[in-house]
């Protein structure tokens, strides 16, 4: 009965959200970074190159033919038009990859979350930690891509520096929704639905051309999808053509994030504390 054995080294957390949180999402993030360092940093790099290739191909190739595009009355070179869209897409891809494939594996095969919930962590810590990891990745892509944009002369406004927090917000929105989606999946096959949603969003969300080319009904549909808001948000910041719509775009992502976090922590509670 030595004191050394009896006194637990763990700090007993206060009751938060009825046992949903141990107030230690940081440890979840730390674990993710450690695992990334020792395993799959190459996978992370691959996600960075995809939009860069698109930028080289479309921006330089097509850009030479197309010339400039009209954005709210301002004339923007084609490369500078698609670059912010590709930045938003890379934030989406990074966040979605992390919050779907990675989370699915950890959930169903690695049993990682079960393990975490044997400690003083709560489901909310796990949800917040994992979403933060996904958006950190989105953030890293964003900074890299912005550097590429800057060197190619595609950054038209000093406001572009705000694209970094904006990208993190976009990543957070997608990561939380992605993780919520993944928590309902039972098999790898169901993951095939993902490209069915992601690819059209990528192609039609004013990524490569303004949505004014579509009839009104389709325009409204595109505007319902999250990526369009992300593309417009980033484009405003890097081109400097900012309108009051920016608040709608930001609001859209805040709601997405809020809904995602609530759904994810509820699902984790149902899955592991049921």
């Amino acid at each position: 009965m030595t004191a050394e054995v009896r006194v637990s080294a763990a700090i007993a957390p206060k009751r938060r959200f009825g046992g949903m949180s141990g107030g230690n999402a940081r440890a979840v993030i730390e674990r993710g970074l450690r695992a990334t360092m020792s395993n799959n940093y190459l996978v992370i790099l691959s996600g960075f190159f995809e939009p860069v290739f698109y930028l080289f191909s479309m921006g330089i190739g097509l850009g030479g033919i197309i010339g400039a595009i009209d954005v709210d009355g301002a004339s923007v070179p084609y490369g500078a038009y698609i670059a912010p869209a590709l930045l938003a897409v890379s934030a989406m891809n990074g966040a979605i990859y992390d919050s779907t494939w990675n989370v699915f594996f950890k959930l169903n095969f690695g049993k990682l979350y079960q393990t975490m919930l044997l400690t003083s962590l709560g489901p909310l810590d796990v949800a917040i930690g994992e979403i933060t990891l996904a958006l950190l990745r989105g953030g890293v892509y964003a900074v890299g891509f912005l550097i590429v944009m800057q060197t190619m002369g595609l950054v038209l406004s000093p406001l572009a520096i705000l694209a970094i927090p904006a990208v993190i917000l976009i990543a957070a929105g997608f990561a939380s929704i992605g993780m919520a989606f993944t928590s309902y999946l039972k098999t790898f096959q169901q993951m095939d639905w993902l490209p069915m949603v992601m690819l059209p969003m990528f192609l039609f969300s004013a990524t490569f051309f303004p949505i004014t080319v579509y009839p009104e009904a389709i325009q409204i549909m595109v505007q319902c999808f999250p990526l369009w808001h992300g593309v417009e948000l980033i484009r405003m910041l890097t081109t400097g053509v900012v309108t009051s719509m920016i608040w709608v775009h930001i609001g859209y992502y805040l709601v997405m994030l809020g809904v995602g976090v609530v759904v994810v922590s509820r699902r984790l509670r149902a899955l592991f504390l049921g």
Partner: peptide, 11 residues
């Protein structure tokens, strides 16, 4: 049911 994290910190 309500003090999961606090209990698990000692288990």
């Amino acid at each position: 049911n309500t003090d999961g994290p606090a209990i698990r910190s000692q288990l």
